[in-house]
Design a protein around this nucleic acid. Structure first.
Lengths: 256, 256
DNA sequence: ACAAAAGTGTTAACCGTACACCCATGA
DNA sequence: TCATGGGTGTACGGTTAACACTTTTGT
């Protein structure tokens, strides 16, 4: 009972996983990244069915749910200390591989606990694309980024989960500067703007955007410009945590 | 398996409830009402321990979680067709009666499924105080309204659940006119303002508030005034669903 | 008559939005 | 030299926030 059940051989995992985990409850993570001016999510491809799904996992019988989500994120990305946001719990009784006509994963059979109905707790996380090492689990043949508008049909209700996560993210974006988590520590104003535009699905005015962001007084402009672009070199900025903490106390007002 | 497990005798419920319900998962409802210019929540008092808790329940093995929450609301208030809002899922591993030193409820023993760890899905609802018939369940000796600032220490993390619900409600208040659900069909502007002030915990300017609310064009002023008050009789208003639907299409902007 | 609540409108400050010109760079 | 993207400031309009007097009613 002490070892990590995820490292069990699949057969054992599917047969005895229910002695480690809470039954009927799972966690799914919508892990957002931003690269090439595109918003992406991390997806897993199942070994046997070639179908795609969100990275997910289960809750140890004595484990906190936030902790379980943190572990999933760590295993799939290599990242720690990332803020995970719990956004919704999905409890349609049809969340059941049997009812969706999904075959038991290789190594399991139709009586496996994994073939039961599951209620899943949805979390999203914003990660820096370049720091992620997408890592499949024992049951998947690949783990990779997928552009948000090109997500294929996923298993169960995972498409709905992504849509719901995106809505929740948009709401948060207007309240907190979550966007910075998606960028490298040094970034340019056009990059930040492009990120906001992608998440919000709308074009923004360059000058007003910059004015607004700078007025929050949470960025430091470096004496450096981003070289290598095809045109005029834009300034680099850094997110300033101290300023941010200070600004939070005085009440931040976003609303891009 | 067909009959309503909640109507089983307590002994049987505590011994065999786990054959009807998903194990380790519960639902708790924060039911808000507004009366005497005070925001209130509905609480249950346990028969044996005399301790208070939120009204809650469990999820049938093939039941939708929203449906389960709806049933809980109906049983405790007699109300149907009320919007329930799922706001957070609480998954601290210490959500466990044993770990909190809570004795098994009368009719159960320490081995009952109810003494296990539970993950609970939190919902809130806004109901019209006067329409509610607070109804205890088989395990509680009373069910009654409690003013929000006078909530006693509740079992497990139920105080945290109420606090979280209230935060979520405040956020919603700025997006949707949820407040109207708490008032009778005819209400006065001062009553509505008092409701907003209570939920937001802040005083508002009378004139600006009225201007704002009326500008949404979702209220009809009746040719009636509320009599019986000690002072000048205020007009009565009615929430106009047709106007509201129309306004929604054009994009409502709250922000009181 | 007076105290306490309700009805009503105007003004000033602020914020959001629209908009144009110059500069740097690579092709 | 030209096309493309980046840096910067101003002016207008709408929304929000502040604010005072009159009316009604019960005591």
């Amino acid at each position: 009972m002490q070892k990590d059940p995820y490292s069990l051989p699949p057969e054992e995992f599917y047969e005895h996983g229910d002695s480690y985990f809470l039954p009927h409850i799972s966690i799914d993570c919508v892990i957002f990244g931003f690269h090439d001016n595109q918003l992406k999510v991390l997806l897993l491809e199942w070994k046997d069915s070639l179908r795609w799904s969100l990275p997910g996992g289960f809750i140890l019988k004595d484990e906190d749910i936030d902790q379980a989500a943190t572990t999933i994120l760590l295993k799939r990305t290599g990242l720690e200390k990332i803020h995970l946001h719990q956004f919704h719990t999905f409890g349609d009784p049809n969340r059941d591989r049997k009812k969706h006509g999904i075959n038991p994963p290789k190594g399991s059979n139709s009586k496996s606990w994994i073939m039961n109905r599951f209620i899943t707790i949805g979390y999203w996380a914003l990660v820096e694309h370049s720091k992620v090492t997408p890592t499949p689990d024992a049951f998947s043949r690949s783990c990779s980024w997928c552009e948000i508008s090109e997500v294929p049909e996923l298993i169960l209700d995972h498409n709905l989960i992504i849509d719901t996560a995106l809505e929740s993210l948009r709401l948060q974006l207007n309240e907190y500067p979550v966007g910075f988590n998606l960028l490298p520590s040094k970034f340019t104003m056009p990059e930040l703007q492009s990120l906001y535009e992608t998440i919000l699905g709308d074009k923004l005015d360059r000058r007003n955007f910059q004015k607004k962001i700078l007025s929050l007084d949470i960025l430091t402009r470096l004496n450096e410009r981003k070289q290598g672009g095809a045109h005029k070199a834009p300034y680099l900025y850094r997110f300033d945590k101290k300023k941010y903490q200070k600004a939070l106390k005085q009440g931040l007002s976003f609303g891009i």
